[in-house]
Measured scan of single mutants.
Amino acid sequence: MATDAALRRLLRLHRTEIAVAVDSAFPLLHALADHDVVPEDKFQETLHLKEKEGCPQAFHALLSWLLTQDSTAILDFWRVLFKDYNLERYGRLQPILDSFPKDVDLSQPRKGRKPPAVPKALVPPPRLPTKRKASEEARAAAPAALTPRGTASPGSQLKAKPPKKPESSAEQQRLPLGNGIQTMSASVQRAVAMSSGDVPGARGAVEGILIQQVFESGGSKKCIQVGGEFYTPSKFEDSGSGKNKARSSSGPKPLVRAKGAQGAAPGGGEARLGQQGSVPAPLALPSDPQLHQKNEDECAVCRDGGELICCDGCPRAFHLACLSPPLREIPSGTWRCSSCLQATVQEVQPRAEEPRPQEPPVETPLPPGLRSAGEEVRGPPGEPLAGMDTTLVYKHLPAPPSAAPLPGLDSSALHPLLCVGPEGQQNLAPGARCGVCGDGTDVLRCTHCAAAFHWRCHFPAGTSRPGTGLRCRSCSGDVTPAPVEGVLAPSPARLAPGPAKDDTASHEPALH
């Protein structure tokens, strides 16, 4: 009773807030009518008042009428009001819900409408889902798969039609296919003929059939049928067999079959498995989609049935006599038709004709302190090069084509190399640097090759510096006499390219 009084008091307290929050009759008014909170006449009256005075006034009048009803109607109103779709449509209802007392429970059932309790003993237990329907569909599909699609060729003596089998029958139906081979029951999904010589313990000319048996419980189990008994694959494991010639990621696949039913060829011909030897223990289905393919039931050349050999690369099948050149017997292992072999060759040939990528240039590290003349020119003028003790990398590039010797140069053309002071002394051009340390401070000019250098860098042994005729380390061993002091540049003949010694390969005349 306390809860009923509290709900009535809360409705009177929030009546105006609810009326202002509800700006549309749908969905709240319609939901109240659906849950029998508002009768039909009051529903029509509220809609009429909404058209006349507006939605807030109409709902305020409806809530005032609701306060005169019993506690069950008020409880049902609060339940409908706080439904998710009403809270989404009328956003101003959320503060009312947040301020609702926590001790007021809106989930209690309506009085007088409590459903009768059902004894637990009368409640049926839930049924577990079964796979009976899938099993029945598999039974119905198996006879259809064994139905012949056409008439065999005159040369083929193997013609068999499976008798119709009602689904209610649980007995196995067997077809006489000759040579002791028996087909599987209607619940078998796949059958492959297997030679009895590969099964340990088999006697006589009995041949087993590799099947997948579907049981009534819905589970499946792969086994071997020899005669009327089934054997699990673990009985046929043979770890010492060295003649297993397995197909790549293979499961067994029928390579020879008669049109209309699988079996042995007439005249004692023995149908073979995809792999010879003992049956392997793992009978998992292969991951290669080509091995799941269903080959055609007629020859791809003459479009006739009979004894066919199936290609492992495509769905086509052929007569042995229709092949070019014809085959006398079934080859062992994987067999592919000429079209598949030709496609494989065409895929391999473009790969062989692809040009080989060019090898990157060989990189040879230079000892610290040495650099090529090109690196000396590329440096920024007026700045010493940083990191001189790091190992430089010199790339061996292809030799350029031989060019004509340089033409003779006048001494005026070499004027930018040297600057003559007032006393006739050779001065260095701006930006000249030593080729060893890279520093341009207090550098000297070689009178023979006009290269800038430090005496301490080229002659670290402490050799005394002569007063005139300074030469760098590369030119100090040259027998050519030094030019007379005061000459602007060496003779043009000295600039012609010539053979250089091994220790002077990195010091070429550089223009500054």
Results as ranks from 00 to 15, higher is better:
101 P>Y: 02
49 L>D: 00
56 P>S: 04
47 L>T: 00
251 G>C: 09
222 K>G: 04
234 S>G: 12
55 C>V: 05
74 I>Y: 02
217 S>I: 05
11 L>H: 00
235 K>G: 12
13 L>P: 03
29 L>I: 02
117 A>Q: 14
7 L>I: 10
189 Q>N: 08
22 V>K: 00
268 G>D: 08
98 D>M: 15
265 A>S: 10
55 C>D: 04
23 D>T: 01
27 P>D: 00
234 S>Q: 13
110 R>V: 13
191 A>E: 02
7 L>C: 00
30 H>Y: 13
25 A>P: 07
168 S>G: 07
238 D>E: 06
240 G>E: 04
219 G>Q: 02
77 F>V: 02
177 L>A: 08
77 F>D: 01
144 A>T: 10
184 M>R: 09
152 A>W: 15
77 F>C: 02
207 E>W: 00
248 S>R: 03
21 A>R: 01
119 P>L: 08
20 V>F: 02
68 T>I: 00
25 A>R: 03
265 A>L: 13
125 P>V: 13
270 E>A: 07
244 N>V: 03
24 S>M: 10
172 Q>R: 15
257 R>I: 07
223 C>F: 03
47 L>A: 05
172 Q>M: 15
61 A>T: 05
29 L>C: 01
68 T>Q: 00
20 V>E: 00
162 P>M: 05
210 L>I: 09
66 L>K: 01
18 I>E: 06
250 S>H: 09
172 Q>C: 12
113 R>D: 06
236 F>A: 10
17 E>Q: 00
106 L>W: 06
232 T>A: 09
172 Q>N: 06
60 H>Q: 03
270 E>F: 09
72 T>G: 02
200 P>K: 05
272 R>A: 06
59 F>V: 08
216 E>R: 00
189 Q>M: 00
64 S>E: 00
202 A>M: 13
41 D>R: 02
232 T>G: 09
196 S>T: 07
26 F>I: 00
234 S>A: 13
207 E>G: 11
106 L>S: 00
126 P>K: 11
242 G>E: 02
265 A>H: 07
49 L>T: 00
247 R>M: 14
96 I>P: 01
112 G>K: 03
99 S>A: 00
8 R>N: 00
82 F>L: 02
185 S>C: 08
113 R>W: 06
24 S>R: 03
142 A>M: 09
211 I>E: 00
169 S>E: 03
229 E>Q: 12
18 I>V: 01
169 S>N: 12
38 V>P: 01
235 K>C: 15
77 F>I: 02
249 S>P: 04
196 S>N: 09
70 D>M: 00
248 S>V: 07
64 S>H: 05
160 A>G: 09
122 L>Y: 15
77 F>W: 00
9 R>K: 00
176 P>F: 15
94 Q>R: 15
230 F>Y: 04
40 E>T: 00
71 S>H: 14
191 A>C: 11
60 H>Y: 03
50 K>H: 04
137 E>T: 02
38 V>L: 02
38 V>A: 00
208 G>S: 06
123 V>D: 11
3 T>R: 12
237 E>C: 12
107 S>A: 10
271 A>R: 06
68 T>N: 05
256 V>Q: 06
213 Q>L: 02
134 A>G: 01
67 L>F: 01
3 T>P: 01
212 Q>V: 00
157 Q>F: 15
117 A>H: 13
234 S>L: 10
175 L>E: 01
240 G>A: 06
223 C>H: 07
148 P>L: 14
41 D>S: 06
228 G>I: 00
267 G>Y: 10
67 L>H: 06
14 H>Q: 02
76 D>H: 03
83 K>D: 01
59 F>Y: 01
132 R>P: 00
200 P>R: 10
224 I>G: 03
137 E>H: 04
141 A>C: 09
34 D>P: 07
154 P>T: 14
272 R>W: 08
215 F>M: 02
137 E>K: 01
219 G>T: 10
250 S>G: 08
144 A>G: 14
181 I>H: 00
67 L>K: 03
251 G>Q: 04
40 E>R: 00
164 K>I: 06
45 E>I: 00
36 D>A: 03
92 R>D: 02
